[in-house]
Computed example of a mutant assay.
Amino acid sequence: MHVHNLSEQNSILNTFIAEMRNISVQKDSMRFRRNIERAGEILGYELSKTLDYQSSEITTPLGTAKENLPNNDIVLCSVLRAGVPIHNGLLNYFDKAENAFISAYRHHKHNPESFEIIVEYLACPNLEGKTLILADPMLATGQSMVATFEALKPFGTPKNIHLVSVIGAKAGVDYLSKHFTKDTHLWIAAIDDTLNDRGYIVPGLGDAGDLAFGEKLQH
């Protein structure tokens, strides 16, 4: 798997990540959502450099111009509910993309330290031969991303697969590397070192879904 860690180079993305992590700033849920969205835009821009392009002739009021334009059939799939802001950010850049949505959550059977990933709702177009962009802002253990992809398999085999996250843990990145093909691309804004006993990223930023949309009742 090709890992593109944007934190390896300084950019304005650092500011958005810092605000998302900051316990004082993240109290503003509207700003938190917008920062996730802006991170999605930047990750989408970097991802776009690897797409297929073809030359097109554009008619202007004064003549014609040649532009290289993307030539991929893109499907954006986000994991509900935390994935909505990053989905919007990607959709801001990939105007003509088709869209898929899937729910995946941790179900704690017996204690807070053990869980399974439950997938319930799924809406998806045909994926055969298309470019799949699978987005989830937090990449902790990696189990949600893998479970989501397994649920998408009946809809066809994508030509290309791009995984997009804002903050991840090394363990989650390693887990994805074992479950996705070598030509899969992971685009991520920052990778942290540690997962705690409950499988949350440290230092991370907390629960992205709760910060964006309010606390939820536990199953």
Rank of each mutant, 00 (worst) to 15 (best):
H107N: 15
T157K: 13
P85R: 10
H107P: 09
V3C: 08
V75Y: 00
D183K: 11
G89T: 03
N10S: 14
I42G: 06
P125Y: 02
D210P: 00
Q143M: 08
M30G: 05
Q26V: 00
Y53W: 14
N10W: 13
G63C: 15
G168N: 10
G44R: 03
H107Q: 15
H179Q: 04
D207V: 14
I42C: 07
L90P: 02
V79S: 06
G199F: 10
S177W: 11
K27Q: 07
A135C: 07
T157Y: 12
A190I: 01
A18G: 07
K96A: 01
L13T: 11
K170D: 04
I191F: 13
E8K: 12
E67K: 15
Y45S: 14
Y93K: 10
I188V: 15
L13Y: 13
A151M: 11
F213S: 04
I118K: 15
S103I: 11
L139N: 00
S177Q: 01
Y121V: 13
W187P: 08
E19I: 05
P137L: 09
Q26S: 07
T60L: 15
Y121S: 09
N71C: 03
A212W: 06
G204R: 06
I188C: 10
S103Y: 14
V146K: 09
T184K: 13
Y53P: 07
G129D: 04
H87R: 05
L47C: 09
Q26D: 06
I161E: 05
N99M: 01
E19V: 03
V146M: 08
E128H: 00
Y175C: 05
P112M: 12
E41L: 00
K130G: 02
V166E: 07
T50M: 14
S7G: 00
V202G: 10
L217R: 09
F16P: 03
Y105G: 06
K130R: 02
I102T: 00
T181C: 02
I167E: 02
A189K: 11
I118T: 12
S48N: 11
P137N: 02
I191E: 02
A18S: 09
A82R: 06
E150H: 15
L51D: 12
S29E: 06
Q9Y: 14
P61F: 14
I86D: 07
S56W: 10
T148Q: 09
K27V: 03
T64K: 15
E37G: 04
G142I: 00
P112S: 13
G142L: 02
T64Y: 15
I201Q: 08
N5V: 04
L47K: 04
H2R: 11
N160Y: 12
L51F: 15
G63S: 14
R81A: 08
